[in-house]
Design a protein around this nucleic acid. Structure first.
Length: 405
DNA sequence: TCTGGGGTCCTAGGACCC
DNA sequence: TCTGGGGTCCTAGGACCC
């Protein structure tokens, strides 16, 4: 017996949520963007897509394509709230629910079928509830594995329902471009095209040794993908592995030439990272600083230390030390700070009373921010910061989604 | 007023040790 | 007085996802 996997993909999620909250936007071309002036389109409503607006487009370009475009700032809380409600609906059908991103979920129905009936009727029931309870539409794909379920949900957007039966698989793959598969992006698509491989059918027939020679271990996975095979399990939230890294980055309002101009920004990023570490009871042993130049070349430098840290000022100190060692080649447009090699538990207990005091202070600040909202309390140094900064939270994937469940 | 921000995994090269 | 090879760790970069 094969598995039955269902994939839910919310239609134009951010834009649809905004249209639902602001009825005046219904039926209008809407683009949801970040708060920064250098933002891009995060999600376009179907009305906007029909006029050529798409994800990743800059605002000026989107406006040229669609002068009547309504631009809305993304509202992180709204989307994570909707995501939590979606999760609750899914869990009425199976405990095996994987939140793949803020607007996508996999359900393993294999064990639920004998209770709930045929998969297509389960899918219709879920769509009905999403429409009734969230006033949103979703596209659903059902297939014997995650790879094909995700492919299926994308075949009839919006508001679609596609079931791939095992017998349909070969014919479907024959006409599916390789880049439609989750895992094959533009770069791999181009490399495959250079080998004369453009459809999944062709990929499935390509000899394994050739793929392994060209792509290494990825070749095994690609061969399986071409055959429509995928053994990866649906991983429920409670079984999700611990995070490997926690980081933040920001594109500056204007490019910066001098190192010193990056300090405030670096400190702010360090504080956000530190706070999330402490919220999750983690500390880390590697600090990575990422810079992106005006010409979009991006590079990173990291430093490792013996004792894990979770302290804003220590993270900042290490990040600054890395920055100090870099000779800036040109103006910088993006800065990022991230901590990895994470371990459970707080950082070390400081040796000096002054540092212990700071630790207590930070714990108190965390409590205030938890109670009154992020940004309620921050280090005085950040008073100089750009006032817009704390408003920026256009995260694709809701940070710390686990905390909501 | 060109090009966001959050992650994961894999690879390749060099250092270092035995 | 020419030169080995395996294993592991570290670092940087690139590909992918949303």
């Amino acid at each position: 017996m094969h598995a039955t996997i269902l994939h839910i993909d919310m239609d134009a999620f951010f834009a649809s949520v905004e249209q639902q909250v602001h009825p005046a936007l219904k039926g209008k071309p809407v683009a949801v963007c970040g708060a920064n002036t250098r933002t891009v389109v995060l999600t376009a409503s179907y009305e906007a897509r029909a006029r050529g607006v798409s994800t990743g487009m800059t605002l000026p370009e989107a406006r040229v394509r669609c002068p009547e475009l309504r631009i809305v700032r993304s509202d992180h809380d709204r989307y994570t709230h909707a995501c939590r409600r979606l999760l609750a609906i899914c869990r009425d059908y199976t405990p095996d629910v994987e939140i793949f991103s803020v607007d996508e979920a996999f359900l393993d129905l294999t064990r639920s079928l004998f209770l709930l009936g045929p998969p297509a009727s389960i899918a219709r029931a879920i769509k009905h509830r999403i429409r009734r309870e969230l006033c949103l539409t979703a596209s659903i794909g059902i297939a014997p594995n995650k790879l094909l379920a995700k492919l299926a949900s994308g075949l009839k957007k919006p508001d679609g329902l596609v079931v791939i039966e095992p017998n349909d698989i070969p014919a479907l793959l024959e006409e599916t471009p390789v880049e439609d598969l989750c895992g094959i992006g533009p770069a791999l698509g181009k490399k495959l095209a250079a080998l004369g491989i453009t459809s999944c059918g062709q990929l499935g027939r390509t000899p394994l040794p050739l793929l392994v020679k060209r792509f290494g271990v990825l070749g095994y996975r690609m061969k399986a993908m071409g055959l429509g095979q995928d053994a990866s399990p649906v991983v429920p939230l409670e079984a999700e592995p611990e995070a490997k890294s926690i980081g933040h980055s920001m594109t500056l309002e204007r490019n910066v030439i001098h190192r010193d101009q990056l300090s405030t920004c670096l400190f702010q990023l360090s504080c956000r990272v530190g706070r999330r570490l402490r919220e999750n009871g983690l500390s880390g042993r590697v600090v990575t600083l990422t810079l992106r130049y005006a010409d979009f070349r991006t590079f990173s430098h990291q430093t490792r230390f013996k004792q894990p840290i979770d302290d804003d000022l220590e993270i900042y100190r290490f990040a600054r030390r890395i920055l100090k060692g870099i000779r800036l080649g040109q103006a910088v447009r993006l800065v990022g700070v991230s901590l990895s090699d994470l371990v459970c538990g707080a950082g070390q207990i400081p040796l000096f009373e002054k540092d212990r005091q700071r630790q207590r202070l930070m714990a108190a600040m965390d409590r205030v921010n938890r109670r009154y909202g992020s940004g309620a309390l921050f280090w005085g140094t950040l008073l100089k910061r750009d006032p817009h900064r704390d408003l920026v939270s256009p995260a694709w994937r809701p940070e710390g989604i686990k905390q909501y469940c």
